[in-house]
Amino acid sequence: MDVLSDVIAAMRIGRPHSARVEHHGPFGRRLPTTVPGAGFHVVLQGKCWLVPPHSAPIPLTAGDVAFLRHGTEVGIADHPSTPMPDTPLPAPASFPIRRNEQPAAIAGNAPGSVAVPTVMLCGAYLLDESRPHPLLQELPQILHLPASQGHRPELRSAIELLNSEVIEPREGADVIVRALLDMLLLYILRTWHDKQASHHKTTGWAAALRDPATASALQAIHADPARQWTVEELAAHAGLSRPALARRFTALLGQPPSSYLTWWRMTIAARLLRESEAPLATVANNVGYTSEFAFANAFKRAHGTAPGRYRRQL
């Protein structure tokens, strides 16, 4: 089981969306922080600035990628001094595939001349932020991947393919765009993890997924979360003794294997309650509980409410 893919699948609560936006002349907008998930901005042409409220503005040029975690307040403008009014995004169901703003004449230039537009590819991922996975939580609020530092070829290819589908949608574009958005998210996360590896980070999820023993234990948990795993069995998968795995797992991820197993089971249970009408006994069995009562107690400890009430509140 691919841990990174599994995490994204477990947190998704809706379809991702994308738009290609052209800005002509001075522009500025402050993005809302109420969208439940994360988003990205890719500069295809021109340049602009990301303007966080409490840190230095970040210049973006053609080829740069900016990934924003949920709740990240930021403005986008042609210059940090440009006013940035709050601009609500359309509802997810009507999120535009393409939006072009009208060109604005350049002051002092010949009549009819227009500014070179800034063209951006933007996207939003709807994720369950009530119980965010620590793999995503350890990302910075703004993840900036400058083109000048070089990107993986597959990241560039995904951007080009997504841009092509957004510009000229054809038959099957709806499914293709969703798949490409998932690809782009995973390539962004891969690039971040590789960057962390190059900095020789010794703790966190990037380090854990590079560590053969810890990665092996994580893969075992994700492949069969309903199994009654013991730390001894996970250690056998990892090729370590029980104490050695417990120490390494806890040092890298901040919690022992048994705690992460329970946390992941409750994350899967929440997804099953959201996405299916399966009886509670079936949900309990799918996450390793033979007793519905024991499952309900574990779920309430994790989510603060009983599983039946959790489902009714959705």
Rank of each mutant, 00 (worst) to 15 (best):
L272T: 03
W229L: 06
M266Y: 08
V42H: 06
V35H: 06
S55M: 06
F40P: 01
I221S: 02
G46P: 08
F67T: 01
W192I: 10
N285C: 01
A220M: 07
A158D: 14
P90T: 05
L209S: 04
G204T: 07
G14L: 05
A10K: 00
P225Y: 06
N163M: 10
D224W: 07
N297M: 11
Q228K: 12
L121G: 00
G239M: 04
L135T: 01
L139P: 04
D174W: 06
P92G: 10
A105H: 11
R98K: 15
P57N: 06
A223W: 03
H70Y: 09
P243T: 03
T282W: 15
R190P: 00
P279Q: 00
M183N: 10
P53I: 07
H23R: 15
F27D: 01
G288A: 07
N109F: 15
H199N: 12
A236N: 03
L240T: 01
G304W: 06
P85N: 09
A38V: 04
H133V: 01
L280Y: 10
R30N: 05
L209F: 01
P90Y: 03
L261I: 11
A284Q: 02
G46M: 11
L126M: 12
D128M: 03
D224L: 10
I188T: 04
G308V: 11
A220R: 02
H303T: 02
V177K: 03
W263E: 08
R210Q: 08
L31N: 02
A278V: 03
Q219G: 09
A10G: 03
R309C: 05
A220E: 06
H24I: 02
P52A: 08
L280V: 15
S55P: 00
Q196S: 08
L272Y: 12
H193K: 14
V177A: 03
R274Y: 01
E292F: 13
L218R: 02
H41Y: 09
G25M: 07
R274C: 15
W264G: 08
S216M: 00
H193P: 00
A306V: 11
R178W: 06
E292R: 15
R30W: 03
R242M: 14
V35W: 08
G150K: 05
T267G: 13
I13C: 09
P103W: 09
T250I: 11
E233A: 14
A281D: 11
R271N: 09
A246N: 15
V114E: 09
G37I: 06
A147P: 05
E277T: 14
A107H: 04
L245H: 08
P243C: 00
L280R: 14
A110R: 12
Q149L: 14
